[in-house]
Amino acid sequence: MSGEDTEALLDALDRIDARLHDEQAYLTDLDSRVGDADHGNNLARGISAVTEKRDDLAEMELDEAVKTVGTTLVSEVGGAAGPLYGGSIMSASQTLDGGLDAESALAFAEAYREKLTERGGARPGDKTMVDAVTPAVHTFQRAIEEDDLPPIDALAKAVDAARRGVAYTVPLRASKGRASYLGLRAVGHRDPGATSTLFILEELLATATD
């Protein structure tokens, strides 16, 4: 075992694993309305591959473990979600080389958001996972940097912001991803990737408050 941080990561991964499997059918169903009916299956396959590496992860430092989570997602998920989730985690993992604290969490969040938008080219309002990530990261930053909230409270605010981001995707038409082909017919449906992002953030918060 390589320390408290990695242990917390494993707890979080277990929770996320359970949650994504619970929500697999729901996420796939969301994707069948605006996409190709595979988002839940893609993430379930990915998180299973990650938790299969549990014993290896337990031996690693936090940054290495997080990087491994990212590479595993990249090499198991495929589709759009694989490189977006996996690539962004991989790239942001460098920020954690000194372990987890308020500052590195902030750096991680910002690096994740940056890589995600760079890779996918989506902007807020394009009806993608960016609509959950961007408000969550901005809220997290403000809560810590300006309001001096403890990280857990900041995370709670970030989760709220992501939830509003998901709701925000409902009335939009999409400009990125498969939903973009639907034009106005995508209006009225929440984005699957934004929704899965929210679920993951909720599990991170649950782990932190536990």
Partner: peptide, 12 residues
Amino acid sequence: AGAVFTSPTADQ
């Protein structure tokens, strides 16, 4: 070949 309707992964 990726999973059904899912792009293959970069390493493949």
